[in-house]
């Protein structure tokens, strides 16, 4: 038995040794955790690899919520070097901020104040915003008029034709109700949400799903994301993108350096690159919101109905406030509206 034990120990030692050797030999990779969209990531990674040939970039893509669970679960021993393009409301969670290391990325100083952390823990080059996906055929079939703003959805004719993301499970759902609450003020905002509730057929678990339900003709209106609407129109679905006339709620996609990174030099190179001109050039192709000054939206987005200067239609969202109030707002939502 003793010899067996000794042997087992030896095997372990060999395993651990090779493992360590392995990790020393490959000190190169920079692992990025991201919630950016699938097709844009492919484009960015190709460009980044060209610009930074010596950086071995590895990317794991998960949805915003799944990524948050992953990052926090791994917090005791993070497996990634950077967070790339993740909802800033989630990034502002104190448990996440504690994992980050302040880093002034090259070009971050050109970003306006709301788009970077005062302590340099994160910066956001891009963002996404709320928009309605309206199914033209269902609107026609049901004799409805094309909505222009949130208030239009209160019309009793829309009863059972509106689908929203559930704010408790979806960041998009939360940004939509925060937009309404911060724009109308607490009291009016809650009353509005309750009135709207009468017409809502269901609160779906994810942010892009309401758009998919609307484009498939299941419901007339899905309150979703501009990205999902533009993409659906490009695919050929009979969908109109409606950006709420009184202003759209939005979310920033923030990037940050992990304090635990074992390859900070390369990680910083990559973060610098996300603000570099050649990255910024591609953002215009995919993003409704680019915070780097001077980037125009893509032709497809403009065709889908995105204004040339998006900043004019964005609501003045206070992200710090929205992060702090999150628990209280969601509790109230579950109590008064949640099903």
């Amino acid at each position: 038995m003793k010899t067996l034990g000794a042997q087992m120990r030896k095997i372990w030692q060999v395993c651990v040794f090779t493992l360590l050797m392995g990790s020393v030999a490959h000190a190169g990779p920079v692992t990025a955790y991201t919630a950016l969209e699938e097709d844009e990531i492919a484009d960015y990674v190709a460009a980044a690899k060209k610009a930074l040939p010596d950086v071995d970039l590895k990317v794991l893509r998960l949805s915003t919520g799944d990524l948050g669970a992953r990052i926090l679960a791994e917090a005791s021993n993070p497996q990634h070097d950077v967070i790339w393009g993740w909802a800033v409301t989630n990034m502002m969670d104190p448990r996440v901020l504690a994992l980050l290391q302040p880093y002034k990325a090259k070009g971050a100083d050109k970003l306006a104040a709301p788009y970077r952390a005062a302590d340099d823990k994160w910066f956001a080059a891009t963002g996404y915003m709320a928009a309605f996906c309206v199914n033209n055929e269902r609107i026609k079939a049901k004799g409805l008029t094309m909505p222009k703003d949130w208030a239009d959805l209160l019309d009793p004719k829309f009863k059972g034709e509106v689908v929203m993301p559930n704010p408790v499970s979806s960041g998009t759902g939360y940004l939509q109700i925060v937009g309404i609450l911060q724009q109308m003020g607490e009291e009016k905002g809650w009353k509005f949400l309750k009135d709207l509730d009468a017409n809502v057929a269901q609160y779906i678990k994810s942010g892009s799903r309401p758009c998919k339900a609307a484009r498939a003709g299941e419901f007339a209106v899905g309150t979703s994301l501009a990205f999902a609407a533009i993409q659906s129109i490009q695919e050929g679905f009979p969908v109109t993108m409606v950006i709420p006339a009184s202003g759209a709620g939005f979310e920033l996609e923030a990037s940050a350096l992990m304090a635990s990174s074992k390859n900070k030099a390369d990680a910083q190179k990559f973060l610098d690159w996300t603000l570099a001109p050649d990255a910024a050039g591609i953002y215009g192709k995919y993003k409704e919101i680019v915070t780097i000054p001077g980037i125009k939206p893509s032709a497809a987005s403009v065709k889908a109905g995105l204004p040339a200067d998006v900043t004019k239609i964005l609501l003045p969202i206070d992200f710090a406030k929205s992060a702090v109030q999150r628990t209280a707002i969601l509790e109230r939502w579950q109590k008064e509206i949640g099903r």
């Binding site: 919520g65 948050g68 926090l72 969670d93 448990r95 559930n166 057929a201 269901q202 678990k205 969601l330």
Partner: peptide, 24 residues
């Protein structure tokens, strides 16, 4: 998540807490 609509069940409660609110 796909077809349950608003019919909340315990598994969705877990999802709401863990994935929606990062409250493991």
């Amino acid at each position: 998540a796909t077809i349950g609509g608003d019919y909340s069940i315990l598994a969705t409660e877990i999802y709401n807490q863990v994935v929606g609110q990062m409250n493991f």
